[in-house]
Design a protein around this nucleic acid. Structure first.
Length: 376
DNA sequence: GAACCGTGGCC
DNA sequence: TGGCCAAGGTT
C-alpha cells in the first residue's frame, strides 16, 4: 500500500535570499561599460557631463545618444557656455534626438545653475529636483553618480530588474512605489553612484527586456522570476493603444535663389520650438486633394507622388507634400523666413520635417566637418 | 493618474 | 511590417 506524501512535505520551501549591492558591484567592477560621460574607476565624475548624459538618455538608447553627446560637449563644454548660448543653437544641437522640451529645459536649467548656484550644480537630490527638466529619477541619478549621495535612482532598468528579482505581480506604473522602497533598501551608502550605474549596465546587457541572459546574472540566485522560469513575463505592464492616423499637407517652396521657406513652431507642444516647412493642420479626415487651399503662398503647386509617413509617440502621421518654385525676391509670409538650401543643416529640423524636405528636394547637403576651422 | 512628448532599432 | 522598447518630465 502506497502512502502519498505531498511534495511540499518532502522538499523544504525554496530559500529566498535577498539581492545584495555587494554581489552586484563585484559584477560591475568586472563588467562595467566604458561610456563617454562616465568617469574611469577612481576618477571623480563631472556633474555637468553626468547631467547632460542623464537628460539625453531619458527614453533614448545609448547608441543614439553617443554622437549627440560628443558633439554637444564639443559645442557647449561647460555649464557657463551652455547658459550663454542662443536658444536656437541649443535646439539645433538637439535636432534629431527627440523630446525637444528636454532641450529647452536643459537650457533653462543651465541658466538657473549659473544664476542661482554660481555655476555649480547643487549636490543634493532635493535641490537638484527644483531645477527645470530634472525629475525624481534624474535628481537621484546626478546626486548619486556625481556627488555620492545615497539616493535611489529608479528608472526603467531598475523597474525591470526589481520586478523580476522580487516577481512583482502589480503592473507598472502601479508598482512604482513598492519598487522605489525595495531599491532604497539595497542602495549602499559607500557606492550609491556605482550602484545606480551597475543596475543600468545589468539592465542593458543582462536583464534585458527580451531574452535576458540569466545565467550570467549576479542576481540569478535571489531572482524569484528566474527561479520559476517566468523572467520574461516581468515586469507586468498595461499596454497602451496607438493613436488614430492623422493626415495633412506640407508645403515646400523653392525660391529661385535656391532658398526654402521655413517657419518655427510654437515653443510648447509637439516639436515645440523646432523648424519646419509650413504645413496644414493635421487631422484624421484631412483631404489631400484640397491641400492647395491651405498653401502659405500663391504659386503653381505640384502635388508630389507618395506621402511622408512618420510615427510619433501617440499617433502616426501621413503628410502629402506640395512643391512650388517661386521667383527671386518673393517675400516670406508673416512669421516665415527663407533659408538657403546650403544652410538647411543649421536649422533645428526634427526628423519628420527632414523627411518632408528630402522627399521634395533630395538629400540635405551636410558640409564636411572641418575641425581645423574651429581651431587657431 | 493619464496624456502628451520623438526617434531609431529590433524581431 | 508593426508593435515594442530605450537612463522620464511636465501638465
Amino acid at each position: 500500500m502506497w502512502i502519498v506524501i505531498p511534495r511540499h512535505m518532502l522538499t523544504p520551501a525554496l530559500p529566498v535570499t535577498k539581492p545584495t549591492a555587494e554581489d552586484l558591484l563585484i559584477w560591475y567592477d568586472r563588467h562595467r561599460r566604458d561610456l563617454p560621460w562616465r568617469a574611469k574607476p577612481g576618477e571623480t565624475a563631472n556633474p555637468y557631463r553626468v547631467w547632460i548624459s542623464e537628460i539625453m538618455l531619458q527614453q533614448t538608447t545609448v547608441t543614439a545618444v553617443k554622437p549627440f553627446y560628443l558633439r554637444f560637449l564639443d559645442r557647449f563644454p561647460t555649464v557657463e557656455a551652455l547658459a550663454q548660448a542662443q536658444e536656437d543653437s541649443v535646439m539645433q544641437a538637439w535636432a534629431g534626438l527627440g523630446y525637444y522640451s528636454r532641450a529647452r529645459n536643459l537650457h533653462a536649467c543651465a541658466k538657473a545653475v549659473v544664476d542661482r548656484h554660481g555655476g555649480h550644480f547643487p549636490p543634493t537630490e532635493a535641490e537638484l529636483l527644483k531645477l527645470p527638466g530634472i525629475g525624481a529619477y534624474t535628481a537621484a541619478a546626478v546626486a548619486a553618480i556625481a556627488f555620492n549621495e545615497k539616493a535611489a535612482a529608479v528608472d526603467g532598468n531598475v523597474e525591470r530588474v526589481m520586478s523580476r528579482v522580487f516577481m512583482i505581480e502589480d503592473p507598472l506604473p502601479k508598482a512604482k512605489p513598492l519598487i522605489r522602497s525595495l531599491t532604497e533598501d539595497i542602495v549602499p551608502a559607500d557606492r550609491p553612484g556605482d550602484f545606480a550605474q551597475a543596475v543600468m549596465d545589468l539592465g542593458a546587457t543582462i536583464c534585458t527586456p527580451k531574452r535576458p541572459a540569466c545565467a550570467l546574472c549576479p542576481w540569478m540566485i535571489p531572482c524569484q522570476a528566474r527561479a520559476t522560469g517566468l523572467q520574461e513575463a516581468f515586469p507586468k505592464k498595461l499596454k497602451k493603444e496607438t493613436g488614430q492616423l492623422r493626415k495633412g499637407a506640407a508645403f515646400v517652396v523653392l525660391r529661385a535663389d535656391d532658398s526654402i521657406l521655413l517657419r518655427t513652431r510654437p515653443p510648447k507642444g509637439l516639436l515645440g520650438g523646432m523648424a519646419e516647412p509650413p504645413t496644414s493642420a493635421w487631422e484624421p479626415d484631412y483631404q489631400p486633394s484640397q491641400a492647395v487651399l491651405d498653401a502659405p503662398i500663391d504659386a503653381r503647386w505640384q502635388r508630389l507622388p507618395g506621402v511622408v509617413r512618420h510615427v510619433f509617440t501617440h499617433f502616426p502621421l501621413e503628410l502629402t507634400v506640395l512643391f512650388a518654385k517661386v521667383p527671386k525676391g518673393t517675400p516670406a509670409p508673416d512669421d516665415m523666413r527663407w533659408t538657403p538650401r546650403m544652410q538647411l543643416h543649421e536649422e533645428a529640423l526634427p526628423g519628420a520635417m527632414k523627411k518632408v524636405l528630402v522627399h521634395a528636394l533630395g538629400e540635405i547637403p551636410v558640409p564636411k566637418t572641418d575641425k581645423s576651422a574651429s581651431e587657431p
